[in-house]
Amino acid sequence: MSLPAYATIPERILHTLYLIVCGLIFLFLILPILIIMPLSFNVEPYFSFTEGMLRLDSDSYSLRWYKDIFTNGMANPDEPVFSKWFADSWNNSQWVRATRNSFFIAICSTIIATALGTLAALGLSQSEMPARSLITSLLISPMIVPLVITATGMFFFYSAAGIAKTYLGVILAHVTLGVPFVIITVTATLVGFDRSLIRAANNLGANGWTTFRRIIMPLIAPGMISGALFAFVTSLDELVAVLFLADVEQRTIPRQMWSGIREQISPTILAVATILVCLSIVLLTTVELLRRRSERLRGITPA
């Protein structure tokens, strides 16, 4: 944004001030996420910058908290044979176990949420859909209803059904919470979807499944993948349902961080957080690329 040549001096000053304010707001958004990265390399068990770190003294930085992710909870962290050390870490390290749980739950719930959500979005985007707005608002509502209420309801119901404190219970809960994101992203891809393509496919003799696989699917694939990634991140980041529904067996990364923050606060959490931030950068980049690809596919080229 540039000022026109006729701008007066007070206008120029105000404009500069405005840009400074905007810069500060962007800093407010991004700085907290960046600041944990150097802190996670702290050699001391503190959450703050030590004087050595400010002097960029290499002795004040270390990877000990990253090592701690793998060794915390191990039977013998100093095992010299790597295969044994690895097996020990894989089975006993709290963080490694939590990561395995998180990914297992997130992958399962993403697959179910994407399948169900895509189907529903296909139905919702048809102009003949009856009671569309009612059904849409119902399907989106898991995102709106406070998590504590959802988790409380699920706790009673799943306990009665005998699936509380099991993987199945947590996965079902995460599917429910991830579905709105899939619907929103896939529906957004279907806006402006050229329906005559479907008619053309039918006209050329394709049945419903072939039409879906060969015509619809490739066009909505970017939306589906973005939706799946949203559902994946939702599950990976979800804590309230896990607090209510999961047992020690199903501890996930957020659950482990939660007890870490509340009980034994150590920079290991910052190390985990740094890794998670890197993961979200990768995911965000993927989604952004997919969005552009989808726009290109649908012929909406950026101006």
């Binding site: 907290p32 961080m257 939660w258 959490i269 995911l283």
Partner: peptide, 13 residues
């Protein structure tokens, strides 16, 4: 980026 970053990570930060 904050939107995609874990809630607990941001709270910890």
């Amino acid at each position: 980026l904050p939107f995609w970053t874990s809630l607990l990570v941001r709270t910890t930060a």
